[in-house]
């Protein structure tokens, strides 16, 4: 259970990507994701895929560890690909019984696959190269204007950090409680679904009670270390938006947005591909 949670976990490092301002990475990710969600023309998708792999390469994180998370996504990828292949109308490529696979369908399936891949990789690489505290600081700084509207941005950033911190602890506790209940004969493996559900309750209730206790303790500990819920001046002020960041954002914008503009402004001979929509 713990092994699986390592997906997207922060990997300490000192690469170019690690040193980028968290805001740059957040905005960059947002741009890429928006670009591929708005439009899925080939140039956009391929350029963005290229960009993501470039970022992975620059972050000096080994590719297998990033791709490990995809293992579970393959099923979704393949299903969506197959569904797109079969259900898209167009020129038939070949027939398999009652099912007809169309050329458009294959294109569309591949596009969906790439889109999902980009969505997954961009978020993974973001969390893998940004430490949670920096991320919280970045979010805090990005959403700072909202404080004027009385949105408690600082508290929200703290909330994110704390939940990140306690996810593994809670999993551990859940395992302990499960074992404890098992040792007292809780029917976790019962064939009846209702019984299993009720048994799950026996894990859930101690877990919730335990986390409330934890929350109280943590609140006291935080208060004793001068936390007042106010803005983290040092954390947000210490972010530096340098030339590096400007360059990174410029590249991302160029890769993601320019093709979009190009396609929309000048109706291209990519017409045939546009028909896919």
């Amino acid at each position: 259970m713990l092994r699986r949670m390592k997906l997207g976990k922060y990997v300490p490092g000192n690469s170019l990507i690690h040193r980028l301002d968290p805001r740059t990475k957040l905005l960059g990710g947002l741009i890429v994701v928006t670009a591929i969600l708005v439009n899925y023309n080939w140039p956009v998708l391929l350029l963005n895929t290229g960009l993501i792999f470039m970022v992975i390469f620059l972050s000096e994180i080994n590719l297998p560890s990033v791709l490990r998370g995809i293992k579970w996504l393959w099923i979704i990828f393949i299903f969506s690909f197959l569904a797109q292949c079969v259900y898209t109308q167009g020129n038939p490529l070949f027939s398999l019984g009652p099912l007809t696979v169309t050329i458009e369908g294959v294109y569309r399936g591949l596009a969906t696959f790439l889109r999902l891949l980009i969505l997954f990789l961009s978020s993974t690489i973001l969390t893998m190269t940004t430490s949670p505290m920096k991320m919280a600081g970045g979010l805090e700084a990005l959403f700072a204007p909202l404080t004027r509207l009385r949105v408690p941005v600082n508290q929200f950033a703290m909330l994110v950090t704390i939940s990140l911190r306690f996810i593994p602890t809670l999993i551990e506790e859940a395992e302990t409680v499960t074992k404890a209940q098992k040792s007292r004969g809780a029917p976790f493996a019962s064939p009846k679904k209702l019984v299993r559900l009720k048994t799950l309750l026996a894990v859930l209730i101690p877990l919730v009670a335990g986390s409330l206790q934890r929350a109280t303790d943590l609140a006291v500990a935080m208060e004793s270390r001068c936390y007042t819920g106010g803005p983290h001046h040092s954390r947000t002020k210490n972010l530096r938006f340098g030339r590096r960041d400007l360059a990174a954002l410029a590249i991302t914008a160029a890769v993601s947005i320019l093709p979009l503009l190009y396609i929309y402004c000048a109706a291209l001979p990519v017409q045939s591909l546009q028909n896919l929509r």
Binding site: P132, M133, I162, R165, L218, A221
Partner: peptide, 26 residues
């Protein structure tokens, strides 16, 4: 400064370094 009984319930940050920086940051 205070240190409490349960070591798990008094650490705020997911990274040790940042945990230690929490007080000075505040």
């Amino acid at each position: 400064a205070m240190v409490f009984q349960n070591p798990d319930n008094q650490l705020v940050s997911p990274v040790i370094e940042e945990e230690i920086a929490f007080g000075p940051e505040n």
